[in-house]
Design a protein around this nucleic acid. Sequence first.
DNA 1: TATGAATGAGGGTTCATTCAT
DNA 2: GATGAATGAACCCTCATTCAT
Lengths: 210, 210, 210, 210
Amino acid sequence: MRKKRDSETTKRQVLEAAKKIFAEHGFAGTSLASIAEESGISDGLILHHFKSKENLYETILNELSKEYYKAIINVDNTSGNLAQTAFEMLQNTFTYWCKDSVYSRIATWAFLENRVSLIKGEKELTTGLAENIRQMQAKGLVDERFSPFALLAMTIGPIQFWMRSRNLFKEALKLDGSDQELDQRFFEQYSQMVMKLYQSPSMIKREEEK
Amino acid sequence: MRKKRDSETTKRQVLEAAKKIFAEHGFAGTSLASIAEESGISDGLILHHFKSKENLYETILNELSKEYYKAIINVDNTSGNLAQTAFEMLQNTFTYWCKDSVYSRIATWAFLENRVSLIKGEKELTTGLAENIRQMQAKGLVDERFSPFALLAMTIGPIQFWMRSRNLFKEALKLDGSDQELDQRFFEQYSQMVMKLYQSPSMIKREEEK
Amino acid sequence: MRKKRDSETTKRQVLEAAKKIFAEHGFAGTSLASIAEESGISDGLILHHFKSKENLYETILNELSKEYYKAIINVDNTSGNLAQTAFEMLQNTFTYWCKDSVYSRIATWAFLENRVSLIKGEKELTTGLAENIRQMQAKGLVDERFSPFALLAMTIGPIQFWMRSRNLFKEALKLDGSDQELDQRFFEQYSQMVMKLYQSPSMIKREEEK
Amino acid sequence: MRKKRDSETTKRQVLEAAKKIFAEHGFAGTSLASIAEESGISDGLILHHFKSKENLYETILNELSKEYYKAIINVDNTSGNLAQTAFEMLQNTFTYWCKDSVYSRIATWAFLENRVSLIKGEKELTTGLAENIRQMQAKGLVDERFSPFALLAMTIGPIQFWMRSRNLFKEALKLDGSDQELDQRFFEQYSQMVMKLYQSPSMIKREEEK
DNA sequence: TATGAATGAGGGTTCATTCAT
DNA sequence: GATGAATGAACCCTCATTCAT
């Protein structure tokens, strides 16, 4: 018996199933058959809609890239408060990476596989964030001794590292609590560490004079 | 004409070729045929020596794990100067990850592929480093407000992020210079940032009083 | 040019070719490639339909088992004449084993390969036949000094032996005639021997008194 | 470390191991590697001694053929008592087939594989046995209505069938006892059945007149 | 749109055999 | 005599893709 003929629904089902499996096994480790099984859509039809496995993967990467970009910059920066904006973006980033591992994993696969689709989005984001930091430095809000890209590395790197190593830490250091709790505890420390790092020497002095 | 019959040499050739290709394409993306071509050893013989593709991969992972561990802890800690020891380990880590991307990439593949071989080594390392930090905190050398594992994340995360994003930064921020130069510039800033982060408030006061 | 897309026909072709080759060379001695060549179906497609060589073989064993069972018990036993029924089953068995060697050979391979698929059918059959003999013994139609399973061995064993050794006999004893003729001649003697063997002592006396 | 250089011992080890494994898996199902493992002799050396897998197998078949022949005809026929001689050969045959399944299984494999090595021995044996029967018939010791080869089939067939189906019977008919016990019970019935079958009508009359 | 039959290339692995040591 | 490195063909099976239905 044929399925209902709803092109969009079918595509959606395929994309969701594929996203899940690609996240788990990467491009080379994923077979169309497994996507067909997971989605309940025959592999013939998958190729009918997406032309090739390659194209299906790229479609997913582009979609993820857009979603990610939207999620990160989805902050209210009308206040003009740069520090506040930056903090919110930080939180967004952290939340997005923690939320589920799909983006995190696919982004990593795609990096290793030398795919440019996701990197393009990240480039824009990186440029934007670096510019943000530069502006804050110009206003004396951020330690000017460090270049924006070095600060960026210190900001985003730990998040990725945390995502990748949470379980390792959990075991090695015998930490208790659910993943969400651990994420929460880490983020508190993490944001304080970032604050300390960004704090400009001039502001420290001012604070101490009080 | 037959090859010379030197088991060790043959194995070495296979391992080097395999390491290179696995680093490039991961486990699933690598075919024994490609390793055979790269190494000049027939796939039949590869399996004669390593039993299976799986086993060959694991052999490489174990080897890398040991090399990594040795390289990182290869510091002269007879001085008892904890800060000095820590800094050297930091530098070792950075250098190792930068040196060539093979370890970095294979470690990342292995993480995505849920392989435990490398992780085991990392766990010991993580525990050791966290203990180092704890001791330094006990002596008032490191900011005690942050937990050791949070500090570890802030220390190692950026290195990995840098390795992965160096090219991205290069393009996005139009940086000049060779990879080595960029690595050097980054490490200078990076180590200063880490210093600032680790610096305990009491020490800051003391310094300012001078 | 593609083949016609008739799943059932294709499967049938594969099964027939496979049956022939498995009968000839057994499971281990048969390659999918040879079945592919014999049937004209590519080995990829064979596995598409039968999942694995193993499964293809089991499919054949099950089919043969069913056919065999049907052929043997296909007797008109409405008359209630046990002796007549038994004789017909004997004839059926003989005919089936003689008809072509496929069943005989595959059953033997399967026995050596420790496969249970065929044996299951044989077990039911054996039980049924033994029960038949027991009933005839209860009615004084069959020599009661021998247990049903001993009689069964004396009944079925020679048929299999004949099938296996016909050619041997032919050569060793310089017999003339086609296989069919030899089978016919053997069956005549065979059925008389079975009769003599089964004949109960009491019946012999009665006959002689006449 | 090299093994002791005793050619005969090595060959013997290989032959015993190979016999066991060939009996279990047949020619096609057996790999030299498995024989090498079982015997503790490297596959290179096996081929050094036996030239090829094929030749090793044939060597075994020939050996078995000779052993079998010796075992069967190993009777004291100086007495000139044909019946006694025949009975002893029957017992020898039964014992040999029951003793262990190696001969039985290899002989069956070899038959299916269309090997002539074993068959040659069987042919001589068959001819000899048929001649025996003919002589007994000439002396009125055996029912003359049946041809020698038909009687042979009724004599040897059940033994092979029993060997092959013992386990089947055991399960189907819920028989108790060890294999040896069952063999013993079967042989008692079997030899009586053979007696009854061979008995010439004239002898029956004579017996009844007493 | 949707299925799955059909293809052919390539996957990892096993194998008998050869030959340098 | 003995080992195991080396070979290459064949093995079963998976795969992305095409196409008849």
